[in-house]
């Protein structure tokens, strides 16, 4: 769902940038994966467990020590993220634009950008792709 919105807006912003002459020299006009890269360990975040006691601090009201084993209770945050993961598949990077990580995952060699190709007063610059 988020990709769709970003794709539409990328087109809109790209068009606006072209019209205003503010386009940059970026090469990845067709790349709509910017900002959606997911780190490999993301899927494990739904496995919650209270931290070791050293993590509690003064204003937690004894919270962590009172609930040492509540790993079965998913939090709203984790359920949200797992739901999002099922709707939006992890993007796959293929081709020369990708670099393979140690674990075999491939990541785009271009620095991430909120709206690829759109560098102007609204969006930050991107370095060259190396």
């Amino acid at each position: 769902m988020r990709i769709d919105k970003q794709y539409i807006l990328a087109l809109m912003i790209g068009a606006a940038a072209l019209l205003s002459g503010c386009n940059d020299n970026s090469t990845n006009l067709q790349d709509d994966t910017g900002g959606t890269e997911v780190s490999p360990n993301n899927s494990s975040t739904s496995d919650n467990q209270s931290p070791p006691p050293a993590n509690s601090s003064s204003s937690t009201s004894d919270s962590s020590s009172d609930n040492p084993s509540s790993s079965d209770e998913p939090t709203s945050n984790s359920s949200d993220s797992s739901e999002e993961d099922t709707i939006e598949p992890t993007p796959v990077c293929e081709g020369e634009e990708c670099i393979e990580l140690t674990d075999g995952t491939k990541v785009n060699r271009a620095v991430p950008h909120p709206i690829p190709t759109s560098t102007n007063d609204e969006f930050p610059p991107q370095p060259p792709v190396i």
Partner: peptide
Amino acid sequence: FEPCVELQYPRVLLQQS
């Protein structure tokens, strides 16, 4: 008044490598 919070820390599994 001191507000209260209870945090849970998600586990992040280590890659085999």
